[in-house]
Design a protein around this nucleic acid. Structure first.
Lengths: 364, 364
DNA sequence: ACGACTTTAGCAACGGCGTTGCGCAAGGGG
DNA sequence: CCCCTTGCGCAACGCCGTTGCTAAAGTCGT
């Protein structure tokens, strides 16, 4: 019996999360701020703040003395009161970061993984790094869980890896179950690009409603953030942006199609023609904008960031010239502010989002 | 002061809508069915059913006498208790339909619109057709409102048409405001393709969570249904699927880019090469699946339905061969069951969905 | 110096939601 | 005939945000 109906505990959790989101976005705020932004009564805000302060995630931060009227209590998020670990698993390395409630990266490290590593080897390596993080920072009672962002395909709902590309020991691995037991912490698993876009969504707040994180790093992918939440698709397989055809009868791609964005892009890179590569990516980005009408595009990935300006300028120019884009059709383009930590940081923030983010209701 | 917080009226409305959705999907149901599907107590279901029966949208439909135990009350949706009108505005014609709560089309008609028609002419024509519908069916006290699906670009939230392509009198027209006043009914405006996919979503129920309605009719577009709701994008401009590039340096498109899906497709149609046209569309559909991971694809639009089998087979074949699609990556492909009424019917269902569908909460 | 006014804040009572406990009715079996 | 299962509603309950009211803190005009 799966619960899909809303009840009072949902109501409470939802409004609590609303205030938490404001706290995260505004850094300091007053009761009136919350009331105006949410429509809640000041009384309700008081009750909610009491709850959050009991949990220790929000604290008073002085008073503001207005020109007229009584002094107002100022509050702030206690960013350090909770934290989460995030892992970025690629084919050869494991990157781990520690982030706090505000989405700030507190600690970060990279280790090589053995060739063709097994699930057991991965979890062992993770356990070692978690110990290391514990020596660098006091995690006791603050650690919310561990998030893992990795190459797909996988099944987010079931928490299993369906079969990571070019990794032999990764077919139908119940990674969440396995890692939860081994690490003794709540574990989340998601596609790398989806984790990445979550990092941006968690940090940027409400204006970041429809966005994509374009990632170029051993392949081309896109993490999608639609209607204020990660979009994973029907089988957790959304974001295979690199395998969309941009050139009918173009060069053959590893995926079996011809003229995939990734194939055309990579070929240009191999030729050393970075300009063309960037221009091809830009065409794909505009394609994405045409179908999804995004407000934000974030560029990321080691191979892209290595030539960040080239890619950024190519996309910028495409936005200006590829389509007569009306003045109201604005797009915010940027390079990720988290550098190569995005995926791992986003995986960590997924854990925080699950616990402190605005909850959804299960579908029927 | 915009309300974004959840309160008890939201809670009530949400659970009511949950039961309504089940009623629509299942046709007949019992209290136990609802309880199991939603997680609500039987007591709560009783209270909700009482409310819905007072409104007249649900009614008892006999009793089921089980082999053991007391007889159980059976209920059903009273589909005819509410209805809505939907309009499909294209450049030359106005199609209007009347649908009931179940999404069944009760009445349908098409009229030509004057060349370069004005907002006033459109609303006048609509008013005439609404009278006609009123003579064919008794709408008194049952009519929920009027939905309008039309060519963009427009602003769904503001209810204004930004400037319909190739229509002179349609720049920054506050259509919702204008039509609401003229017709004396609640009015919704949305892009044609988005209205279309809503029709499918409303009729198909819960399994239809991530889907696209591919439409070929004086252009190529896609209505997107993501995570169980219409996806409009940041500026109500999502779905410009026809203007995604599938052939770098391909033929020039009216939009200014080169090698747009629509340009390549239309050129093939002009040559009489329908097979190629369909194959190009199929490439685009697979592109969409790669980026969004949809579970359902519905084909629609007059130009497509005229050769429905050709297009359907082309897409089917592309699904099988274009990508090594794993067995778990299933896609349900179909032609729309509503024929050329989809857009208008969907516009009507958007009105019903707004009133009787599962509500969302306003973002922060 | 003092009352008028504005703003903040908390206590207490309230209405409404789903939940729980319990009693009652309807229908097979033993 | 009693017992059991199943369906169903009344009544009390807990908890949510809301409303009404009072008090406190401070500015400003007189």
């Amino acid at each position: 019996m799966h619960r899909t109906a809303a009840d009072l505990t949902f109501l409470k959790g939802y409004n609590d999360a609303l205030v938490m989101t404001l706290a995260r976005t505004l850094r300091t705020f007053e009761r009136t701020t919350v009331s105006e932004a949410t429509g809640l009564t000041l009384q309700a805000v008081s009750k909610i703040l009491t709850r959050l302060m009991d949990e220790g995630v929000v604290a008073p931060a002085g008073v503001r003395r207005p020109a007229i009227g009584a002094p107002a209590g100022v509050y702030e998020l206690v960013a350090g009161s909770r934290c989460a670990l995030g892992a970025h698993v690629s084919r050869r390395t494991l990157r781990m970061v520690l982030t706090d409630l505000a989405g700030t990266v507190l600690w970060s490290t990279v280790t090589p993984l053995p060739p063709d590593f097994t699930p057991g080897q991965l979890v062992d390596t993770m356990a070692g790094l978690i110990d290391e993080a514990g020596r660098a920072h006091d995690l006791s009672g603050r650690l919310t869980g561990v998030g893992i962002g990795m190459i797909g395909p996988l099944d987010h709902a079931a928490g299993t890896v369906r079969g990571a590309h070019r990794l032999r020991h990764w077919h139908d691995v119940p990674l969440v179950e396995f890692a939860t037991e081994a690490l003794g912490l709540p574990v989340h698993v998601d596609k790398d690009v989806t984790a990445g876009v979550t990092a941006e969504g968690w940090r940027r707040g409400a204006a970041f409603r429809d966005a994509a994180l374009i990632m170029v790093e051993a392949g081309v992918g896109a993490g999608l953030w639609l209607n204020g939440a990660a979009h994973r698709g029907a089988h957790t397989n959304a974001g295979e942006f690199g395998h969309t055809v941009v050139e009918l009868n173009g060069p053959a791609c590893v995926c079996g199609r011809r003229g995939c964005l990734e194939a055309v892009h990579d070929r240009a890179v191999e030729r050393g023609d970075l300009e063309t590569a960037a221009r091809v990516l830009a065409v794909g980005v505009v394609n994405l904008l045409q179908t999804l009408d995004l407000s934000h595009v974030v560029l990321a990935g080691a191979d892209l960031l290595a030539h960040g300006d080239v890619y950024r300028q190519a996309v910028e120019q495409a936005l200006r010239t590829e389509v007569p884009r009306a003045d109201w059709l604005t797009v915010d383009l940027s390079l990720t502010s988290l550098g190569e930590d995005v995926i791992a940081a986003g995986a960590a923030m997924q854990v925080l989002d699950d616990r402190y983010g605005i909850p959804g209701l299960a579908p029927l």
